[in-house]
Each structure stands twice: as structure tokens, then as C-alpha cells.
Design a protein around this nucleic acid. Structure first.
Lengths: 136, 136
DNA sequence: TTTTACTCTACTAAATCTATAGGGTATTGG
DNA sequence: CCAATACCCTATAGATTTAGTAGAGTAAAA
């Protein structure tokens, strides 16, 4: 299941991507428009900033804004920052790989096998979908 | 992320599917072979029994066994029993649908949109994979 | 009738999620 | 300058889920 953090994060990013101008949008504006707790959203936007997806401007007229064109932000990036691994098990994760401690051999593991397929198909979708596509 | 319950459940089912005879296998045997806590596995197998995937036999020579041919057990069934919804958000779930309380309209929701795609592709894989396929 | 092995309930430690609280700090418009 | 604005950061806490553990009970077979 997707965490609320991810869900809210995506909604906020789409909100920003829909802005015609690339001028900063306040946290309060987004939280109101998207029905998100302001304080929670604050921490989400902060993590999106730290990973280079968003920029921010302080002071009067400040807020958050996208650093890149929505067409250049694939969902793989967004998902990995917000949700973490895309794979359902660490042993098939590309960016967050971990060996299973209970499994003697990945190559013969049934779970590994099917989850690898699922990861590939999910990855394909996220790779080919950008923030721009979600705005349509 | 896949829960250990699901992971262990799949491993146990594959273990049973690999048996040449359809005679009962004890919990202890499976837990030893698959590195799973016996008591935890016990509760998993019980839930698989309650949903009609496994049968059990008590007393000496007892244990659990598959009720159907592995080729007739699709992963959709297994996943829904063990993990619950296949979709990443309740609002795109077929079997566990729930409306989002924060979202005014599903049809215009960006999260709904992409997660629907992911669900479809994942579902396709689970639908076309049976327990038998995982034994190869 | 004794052993074996499943059945069931209850409980719990740990982790994660979903926030909330509250102060700190940089910037900008006036 | 300066005060309002709005981001920045840390700490904490309630709720929920996960991953088991404990222990007694019950059915069946040899």
C-alpha cells in the first residue's frame, strides 16, 4: 500500500506542475487545495527539496517550485524519493537491494522470481510516465 | 513492501506444490525446510486453509496439502488471501475498494490515474502465473 | 489410549506511519 | 532598518501494523 506521504507528495508535485508560471507556491496554498495537513506537507516538500526535485524561496512571496520541466521528471524518481523501493521485496530492488536472510538462493527462490516480473512491469510504467502526464 | 506473511505463505505453498504425492506435509517439515518460525507459519497455513486453498489432516501422519492442482491456483488468489489488495491505493482496488476521504474526484486524481495502470499490469502478471509456474 | 499434529485465542515487542508542536532562521517588501 | 512572511528543523506521540510467542485445546490415527 502506498503511504500517505507518497500520495500527498505526488498530489503536491502535480499541483506545482499545473502552475502556468514557475513562481513559488506557498505550502498553505497547496495544503488547502489538496486537503493535506500543512505541517505534514511541510516535511514532505522539504524532503523533495533535499533530493533536488523542488526548489524553495523564503520570505514574502516565497514558496516551493519545480526545478525542472514536468516532462523531465519521471515517476521513478518521484516514487523512489517518496516511497522508497519500487520492488515488493528488497532482493529484487535495483536501488535498495538487500539479501534476504532467510533465503539460501535467490536464483531458485519462487518469491524472487515472480516479484522480479512485477518489478519490471511496474518500473516500465513509472519510467514512461512523467509528472506532465499526470496533469492531463 | 511484501509482508513476511505473504512471503512465507508463498514459499510454503510452493513447497507443497513441489511434493510429488499430494499427501499431507507437517508444519514442522515446512518451517524447517523454508526457514520459517513454526508458530508463525502455523497461523499462515491456517488462514490458507480457511480460504479454501489448503486442506489439513490431523493426528499422526497429518499435515497440510493443496486442495487443487497447482496449475489451477493463480497468484491473484494467493496474493489476495495473504497480502490483501493488489492495488497500491484502495480507490483503484477491485476487491477491496474504498473511496479516499481526501480526494474530491477519482476521475481527475493524478494518483488514481497512474496507480490504475500499475494495478492492471501487476494483475496481468498474477493472473497469468500459477503456483505451478513458480515451481519450475 | 497415547502420541501426534492441527486449532484457536490472547498477548506483546518492535517498527512504521501519520501526523503535531514549537521554536529557529532567512528573506523580502516597505 | 524591521517586521512580517514563510521556509527550516527537531522532537515527540498516538495509532496501526507486523512479526512473532505462549499456551492450552482438540481431533485423529496407530
Amino acid at each position: 500500500m502506498l503511504s500517505k506521504k507518497t500520495k500527498y507528495g505526488i498530489k503536491a508535485l502535480v499541483h506545482l506542475a499545473k502552475q502556468e508560471e514557475r513562481s513559488p507556491v506557498q505550502i498553505g496554498t497547496i495544503s488547502l487545495a489538496e486537503n493535506i495537513s500543512q505541517k505534514f506537507l511541510e516535511s514532505i516538500l522539504l524532503s523533495l527539496k533535499k533530493t533536488g526535485i523542488l526548489g524553495s524561496k523564503k520570505g514574502k512571496g516565497g514558496g516551493y517550485y519545480l526545478l525542472k520541466d514536468p516532462k523531465d521528471i519521471p515517476m521513478t524518481t518521484v516514487m523512489r524519493v517518496l516511497e522508497g523501493p519500487i520492488a515488493m521485496v528488497p532482493c529484487v530492488s535495483l536501488n535498495f537491494y538487500e539479501k534476504c536472510d532467510d533465503c539460501p538462493d535467490e536464483n531458485t527462490c519462487a518469491v524472487n522470481k515472480i516479484m522480479l516480473e512485477v518489478r519490471d512491469s511496474t518500473l516500465e510504467i513509472f519510467k514512461n510516465t512523467t509528472l506532465f502526464d499526470l496533469c492531463l
